[in-house]
């Protein structure tokens, strides 16, 4: 089976051709080693970082931006969002603070400072 994938490791966006044969992935079209790894991962277990916002309970109209500490499975993005959507934290918040623990293998951490 062959899959055409666009590499997203860097802004260059190399067009990759990934061939899956006997449980192994072969990658063409990459211009760096990261691209080969990306092609393999994308065929076997695609991962994505999720970014969103959480409401600050003790401030008006204020949100803190958050991200998953590590990428999560692409098929879990909406499950992660479900957890984030109903979350709430109180200020102050610092960059890197863990706001929700262990959501499908990642922590939800703050990416903005709210005083």
């Amino acid at each position: 089976m062959e899959r055409n994938i666009t590499c997203i490791i860097c802004p260059r966006g190399c067009p990759l051709i990934c061939e899956i044969k006997c449980g192994k992935v072969y990658v063409w079209g990459n211009t760096c080693p990261k691209g080969e790894q990306y092609g393999k991962d994308e065929c076997l277990s695609p991962m994505r970082s999720v970014t969103s916002v959480l409401r600050i309970s003790n401030r008006d109209d204020t949100m803190v931006s958050v991200k998953t500490s590590v990428p999560v499975s692409k098929y879990r993005i909406f499950d992660v969002m479900q957890k984030i959507r109903f979350g709430e934290v109180a200020a102050p918040v610092k960059i890197g603070d863990v706001l929700i623990k262990d959501v499908f293998g990642a922590d939800i951490i703050a990416t903005k400072e709210i005083n």
Binding site: C10, S49, T51, S52, V53, I95, T111, K112
Partner: peptide, 24 residues
């Protein structure tokens, strides 16, 4: 501050930062 997605800083810092992190 409103660009909460990541992908900033790959050239400058070699890592994927969100907008607010890059600004910070």
């Amino acid at each position: 501050q409103q660009c909460i997605h990541n992908g900033f800083g790959l050239h400058k810092f070699g890592e994927e930062l969100t907008g607010p992190e890059y600004a910070n």
